[in-house]
Design a protein around this nucleic acid. Structure first.
Lengths: 119, 119
DNA sequence: GCCGTACTACGATGCCTATCGTACGAGTCG
DNA sequence: CGACTCGTACGATAGGCATCGTAGTACGGC
């Protein structure tokens, strides 16, 4: 074992090419609190998180929708692994297209979380 | 010349306090091509640009709407000066709340403009 | 082969918003 | 004053989107 199957599921999902990623779409994707939260967790916990790992206060239908928006904007990459769908940040592509943008947004989100959740 | 009238119009517009500016609202404001364009011009040409200076491919009503969204998100500051309404980027507030964010977005927009308009 | 789990697809709904047109208010200049 | 310019307000409209629920598909384990 230890491999054998490269997890090559037949179904794969459409992702935009690096050159097709549009800044407006990325900003729009990140402008939703739900999706921003997802991106923050992905950035913090590293890649390879399944959809079900996230405990969002919405139904699974809505969760699927948000992941799709993130994927179609080019923010995340999704691959099926068995029944689970793993999500990873497209940090390399984003950093190449928009240097520093993702880090700025993440830092801004973290700052704001402290400022608002201030305790 | 060079001053004399402090241009103190009686009508002034509601702006969010610095502490009220929300990252999601800023990202959403910048996710519209029209508004992003406005912000880019403001950043390039310095402050103090009148609404009519912008030649957007929409009617004046819509232009007013976009400026209002930008103002209510805390991205720009607007003041009346006679019949004109001057617009300025709230760079100080944004840089304080979200260091580097505005510059990253502007740089990303410039890069993308080159990449797409790339001749 | 069957069942449970993970996620999707589709339709419905209600809200938000980008857009327009027209009518109006505020200032400036003749 | 009167006319013109700049921008606003309001209503209408059409499209987008966040949300849900239900039904369905794909995979893995028993």
């Amino acid at each position: 074992m230890t491999t054998a199957a490269p997890t090559s599921s037949s179904r794969d999902l459409p992702h935009p090419e690096r050159a097709e990623i549009r800044l407006e779409a990325v900003l729009h994707a990140l402008s939703d609190p739900m999706r921003l939260q997802v991106v923050r967790e992905l950035a913090a916990d590293g890649d390879e998180l399944s959809c079900s790992h996230f405990d969002l206060p919405v139904t699974k239908s809505t969760t699927t929708h948000h992941f799709r928006v993130l994927r179609e904007a080019g923010v995340i990459r999704q691959i099926y692994r068995g029944t689970a769908k793993m999500n990873g940040l497209r940090r390399d592509d984003l950093d190449d297209l928009f240097p520093g943008l993702l880090d700025s947004v993440l830092a801004a989100a973290a700052r704001q979380a402290v400022r608002l959740g201030g305790s």
